[in-house]
Design a protein around this nucleic acid. Structure first.
Lengths: 334, 334
DNA sequence: TTGAAAGCGCTAACAT
DNA sequence: ATGTTAGCGCTTTCAA
C-alpha cells in the first residue's frame, strides 16, 4: 500500500520528524546532514512516497480546495463558468470541487453542508435559493463564500454578477430603436435575482418608451421552457414582432419551436437573447445577444474569495459587471 | 469556530465516543438512553455541528471523492463530459474534483500526484500522454483508475471510449457515397489514440474505395488549428470538395475561415465533423456529424470505476461505444 | 448503557 | 543535527 512517513522512518532508522522535515525541503533549515537527507530521498523514491494530504489537512485545517456550486451544469453558461473556474483556480494551486444543485434549494443546502464538512477553504456559489439566509449563515461562520450570478442584494455577502438590469435595458433599447413595440419576453427562474433584474430592466425600458403592455412569460432557464413558451406565443395574434429570451437555453428552445413552425428569423420575428456562445456567429441567422463577461466574473470572484481566505479585506466586495451587446443579424428594422 | 465532537462531549458531560455513536445514528444499536441521545442532538444543533470529514478520511482512508482529469475544458466535448460526470457522480454520494491538464503531460502527472495525495477513491482520466506508463503505475498501486476518450490499448487499464475507427469510417463512407473523392481531413492531437484511430478509419475507408491520395493536415484539437488549416486549404487548387474535421473545435475554426472567405457550405464545399452539439441543428447549414455517446461514456466509466472501488471485478473492462451519424445538410451530393 | 485509549498521517513545540 | 511528544477530529476495540 501507500507508504507513509513512518515507513520511511523505519527503513532509514531516522525519526518521523526528520523525514517530514527533509521531505518538506526544510532539511537545510534544520541543518540535517547531507547523508541523512540523501538516504531519506532515496527511500522515499523507492517506496514511491506521496504525502497523504488528509493528514496535513487535519493538522492545518486547510485543504487547498475551493467548492463551486451551480444550479445547473446543463446550462452552457454554468458549464462555461465551471470550466473557467476550474482552470483559474488550478492556477492558484488549489483544486476545485464542483457540484450541481439542479435548481433545488434542498440539494444546495445539502451540498453546502458537505462542503463545510469537507473543510473546503472557500465556496463560490450561484445559489438556487429565493433568499440567502443559508448563505449568510455560512458567511457568519467565517467561511469564505462569494456569490456569482445569483446574489442577494440585502446581504453583506460578497458577489460578482452581470449588471442584469443594464443588460436587459441594452437589449430592449436595441429592439425599440429598430421599431419593435410588440415584444415578448421569455424569462427564466422567476425568483432569481438575475431574472428579476432583467425583467425590471425590460419593463423599465419599455415604459420609458411609453409602452405599457408587453408579454412576459416562461418559468425557468431550460430549453424546454423556451420551446413551450414559443409554441404558446405562436398561437397568439397578433404575434409579437420580436422575442427577447433571457438565456441561451431559452433561446435554443425558442429557435427549435420557430424552426419547426417555419417561422423565419428575422423576417417573421426578430430574436435577441441573453448569453453569448461561440456558435451564435454561425447560426442560420447569427444571433444578436447580450454577452455576460463570465471570464471576468470568475476571475473577480476568485480574487474576492482569496482576499477573504487571506483575511485581507477588499474595499469593494459586491461587484456588478457591464455586459456587452453583440449585434448580429437576428433583429430586423421594422 | 466550527464545533467538534469534543465540544459536544464537554457541553453534555458525555464521552466523545457516545457523541460519535449518537450522531452516526448508532445510538440505538449501542442502547444509549433516549435522554442522552436527545441531549446530544440538541447541543449538536445548538453548536451547529458539522462533522469534519478530514477526521473521518484519515481514519477510514476513504474520501468519497472522484477525480476527473481532462486535457481541456475549453473543448465543449470535455466540458460536456465534465458536467455529465459531476452530475452522475453526485448521484452516487461522491463528489468530483475536476482538473485540466491543458494537454500537458507534465501537468497531468502533477495533478495525478495531487489526486493520489488527496486520497481520492478513484480517478477518471482522459490522458494527454503519448503512452500510458504513468497511468499503469497508478493502476498497479491499486488505485482505481479508468481512462475515457484517450486510452491505451496495450495496457490492462480499463477504458471507455467511442469506437473512433468506426466513427471515421461512417463519416468517410457518407462522403464517398455522395460522390466525394477529393476529401481533406483536419486532425487533432496526432499522438492521441482517438486521433490515430480516426485517421486510420479515414484512410482505410478511402483506400477501400480505391482512393489513395487524400489530404491529412492539422495538429491539435483547437479552434485555432481548424481555422489555420482551413485557410491553408483554401490556397490549394483544386480545393477539396469535402472537409472532414475531427472535432467540434476544429469544425468551429473551419467554419470561421470558410465564412470569412465567403465559401458556402455545402454549395462550395461539404463539411462533416466529429462531435455533436445542440447548436448544430440551427447553423446556417445544419452540420452533419458523428455524435459520440458521451453520456454513456460517462455512465459506463463511473460504473467501471465503482466496480473497482468495491473490488467487484467486472468481466469487460475495456469498452468501445458505437457512435452515431447525424445527417443534416452540410454534405451535398456531387 | 457508557467510556478510555489507541491510531489514522502529519506537523510543530519543545527538548537535547 | 535529530528526536520526543502532543494533538488535529474521528472511529473502533476493548473494558467496565
Amino acid at each position: 500500500m501507500k507508504a507513509s512517513l513512518r515507513d520511511i522512518s523505519e527503513r532509514t532508522g531516522v525519526s518521523i520528524t526528520t523525514v517530514s522535515r527533509v521531505l518538506n525541503s526544510k532539511g537545510d533549515k534544520f541543518r540535517i546532514s547531507k547523508e541523512t537527507q540523501e538516504k531519506i530521498f532515496i527511500v522515499a523514491k523507492e517506496l514511491n512516497y506521496v504525502p497523504n494530504q488528509t493528514g496535513v489537512n487535519l493538522q492545518s485545517g486547510k485543504t487547498r480546495t475551493i467548492a463551486l456550486i451551480v444550479p445547473g451544469l446543463v446550462n452552457p453558461f454554468f458549464a462555461n463558468v465551471a470550466s473557467q473556474m476550474a482552470t483559474e483556480i488550478q492556477g492558484t494551486g488549489y483544486n476545485t470541487l464542483i457540484t450541481d444543485s439542479d435548481e433545488s434549494i434542498e440539494i444546495e443546502k445539502e451540498e453546502l453542508k458537505q462542503m463545510i464538512s469537507r473543510n473546503v477553504d472557500g465556496i463560490i456559489i450561484a445559489s438556487a435559493g429565493h433568499d440567502g439566509s443559508h448563505i449568510n449563515e455560512i458567511d457568519d461562520m467565517g467561511i469564505p463564500i462569494v456569490c456569482i450570478d445569483r446574489y442577494f442584494d440585502e446581504l453583506q455577502v460578497p458577489f460578482v454578477a452581470t449588471d442584469n438590469f443594464l443588460g436587459a435595458e441594452m437589449a430592449t433599447t436595441h429592439l425599440l430603436k429598430l421599431g419593435h413595440t410588440h415584444i415578448a419576453c421569455i424569462q427564466g427562474a422567476m425568483h432569481s435575482t438575475p431574472n428579476k433584474l432583467r425583467i425590471n430592466g425590460f419593463k423599465h425600458t419599455m415604459s420609458s418608451f411609453g409602452i405599457q403592455d408587453s408579454t412576459i412569460t416562461g418559468s425557468d432557464f431550460t430549453v424546454q421552457n423556451g420551446y413551450t413558451e414559443t409554441l404558446l406565443l405562436l398561437q397568439n395574434k397578433p404575434f409579437p414582432t420580436a422575442i427577447f429570451t433571457l438565456s441561451n437555453t431559452i433561446a435554443l428552445g425558442c429557435m427549435k419551436a420557430l424552426k419547426e413552425n417555419n417561422v423565419r428569423v428575422p423576417e417573421d420575428v426578430s430574436l435577441i437573447t441573453f448569453d453569448n456562445h461561440p456558435y451564435l456567429d454561425y447560426l442560420s441567422t447569427p444571433l444578436t445577444c447580450v454577452a455576460q463577461p463570465f471570464q471576468d466574473i470568475c476571475r473577480i470572484a476568485i480574487r474576492l474569495l482569496f482576499s477573504m481566505i487571506d483575511k485581507k479585506d477588499l474595499a469593494t466586495k459586491q461587484v456588478l459587471l457591464r455586459p456587452e451587446i453583440l449585434v448580429r443579424n437576428s433583429v430586423k428594422r421594422i
